[in-house]
Design a protein around this nucleic acid. Structure first.
Lengths: 212, 212, 212, 212
DNA sequence: TATGAATGAGCTTTCATTCAT
DNA sequence: AATGAATGAAAGCTCATTCAT
């Protein structure tokens, strides 16, 4: 037996149609019923494969979700990097980032839901890895905002961290109300949320009489 | 026999120290490890009672979480109503509501986390009830914002629904970053988030050169 | 403390309205859902009493069913004795017994069902007692049939035991088809079954040509 | 890959030695201690397998009993059809059917007991299915008896239904007295019960003097 | 590449019963 | 005469995972 039987992409295990199929149904089922409420059995039935096959392709149930995370990180970090390093103005770049994260999350809403919600069910180790990855994203974004603050185009009465957490909180709850079949288009949500992001970055709210 | 030994509060079943204790540990464990990853066994061990005792007080595991939801709804709706019906200006009232929901959520962060995260694991029926309750809250808040829009103090380029969803999204993710032991006080977070809420309500962001 | 607080009837524990009520609902529920599928809880809810009350009146769940058995035995043995010791002809007496057991079973069908079906769930000891009681009944009836056989009015190609078992088998399955609300009256079923009983006692069936 | 390793027989799930073994011990234990008083654990211990294995082969405890019912129905309906459609005289056929059902029930007495006694513990749905199946059997038999009545060889003072219920009642209580180790052979019981069946079909009992 | 079979721990829930008051 | 609280065992069932083939 000479040839390698497994083609590995990073540390993701063998690649094949079956594997792809399993990840696809996992995204759907994890999004709809949550990671915990989806059994490996459910996955296999939906994908039309046996449990044996599942465990040939994945080390564990968690490995599937880890892969989904990895994909999303790659995507989002690439998107962030591309925009952040462009030569547009800081605010312009931040608007584009805000819109981009919204539209790309909605475009792959199931994946995004898994990305936003599965954390508490994973092992300590995996959670740690994911948080580290998130921090990277956060830090890159923070740089940009702090640059804007230094340039005087972004408010300084609030920390960059606070501004980021606020916006990304809103984004990570998009699934609570957005329905792809509804009247609002992906583009619109992207524009609206980006607009709101910018509002939070630039505008100290009007002082209320009572507080003056 | 003079006094009834059991006091029932609405439909919540018998009240007693053990019951209270069980709800308390449930709040902690559900918040820390999620509803799904906390077994009735875990609850009982943490509360120091037997499973039989648990099922003496609660119909099911879900009944505990339902009770937590009920409590939170009562609290939040009371808070909303109190502020919304005051005679301050609309913006002032909205700032107070924004601050209130943040500070009261943080003050009882574990309860809030359960409130924000347990939905997908509950029965269809319970989910339906909870969504109905949330809708009530949303509608009351919408009235207020639409009043502000009519008065010309709140932007009209975005719907009230969008503004609400954005802010409450951010709030429902507070647990992603806020740590009670950190340097930021509850008061501060409340003020900051309320400030950001107001920013989203009042300020159309500056038009960027490229988009003019 | 001088006066006896409990009035006991045989070994049945204290008598009271509550007790009677409990036995009544037990008859209904055991008949409808079987002894095993009825919990003490079910009984208490249906009777509107607490479990504590139940265990004040009965030693155990089995004690309730034991009481139902005792009642039925008393009734059936009295009925048998009364008819069997009359001075009518043997066949006449057997017809009356057959009709009597059918009509009185149907008149209290729920009790009869419990009587016919609960045996396998009871303790060895109780089962033993009940079988002994049944044997008494069986033996008394056998005497009568054997008298008929000696007199030449009952067939002798089959044992009295066989004839009894056959008829009582049929009777103990009455609940499989008889509905009190149906078009057939209790009287009619009694007459029909007695008629069939008599047919089995008296008539060697016609020899079939093939067997001659 | 050439041959399929799993052979499915209708909708009964995978076939294997373990599965067969489980059904066999279920027949024994359900017959001896009733369906309700036999736990899945009991079954597994008796069969020497783990509960996991049990649930690999069966969807539920009820599925086992459903399978036992299916088997029995197949057997009995085949037997009935074979005899009913022969060209012997009606009475001769009925005698054969009566004997057949008795001997085959006794030959597989445990299975028969499960068949006769488990109904009340099953789900509404399963009960409904089983009753439908029983009705089919009943109707086929009724045809035959009504033919006999039309031909004048079976009494008409009682309905075919009544005659069937009486006989099958007796048969379904065979286990109340018959012991395979006793002195009476299966053949004999079959002949005796068939003889009694015929007696009920053909003989109006002698009018008693008092009733003439 | 995959499968069918199996494990063993754990799940939520129900049960008959007890007992201090 | 009766209650509310609690127990501890057992119920039916599901789970992620393993492994010989």
């Amino acid at each position: 037996m000479v040839a390698r039987r497994r083609i590995r992409r990073e540390d993701d295990g063998p690649v094949s149609e079956v594997r792809t199929q399993l990840v696809d149904v996992a995204i759907q089922l994890f999004a709809r019923h949550s990671y915990d409420n989806t059994s490996v059995q459910n996955l296999c039935e939906a994908a039309g494969v046996t449990k044996g096959a599942f465990y040939y392709y994945f080390e564990s149930k968690e490995a599937v979700v880890a892969e989904i995370y990895r994909r999303m990180f790659r995507l989002q970090q690439a998107q962030l990097e591309e925009i952040a390093s462009s030569d547009a103005g800081v605010l312009e770049r931040l608007r584009a980032i805000g819109k981009g994260v919204v539209t790309s999350s909605i475009a792959r809403l199931d994946e995004a839901i898994v990305f936003w919600r599965s954390l508490p069910s994973l092992s300590e180790e995996t959670q740690h890895d994911i948080r580290a990855e998130r921090r990277k994203y956060h830090l890159r974004l923070r740089e940009l905002i702090e640059q804007g603050q230094a340039e005087g185009v972004i408010r300084t009465d609030l920390t960059a961290d606070m501004l980021i957490n606020f916006f990304y909180g809103a984004v990570h709850q998009l699934d609570a109300w957005y329905h792809p079949e509804g009247p609002i288009t992906v583009e619109q949500v992207g524009d609206f949320y980006a607009e709101l992001f910018l509002s939070t970055l630039t505008s100290p709210s009007p002082r209320l009489p009572a507080q003056q």
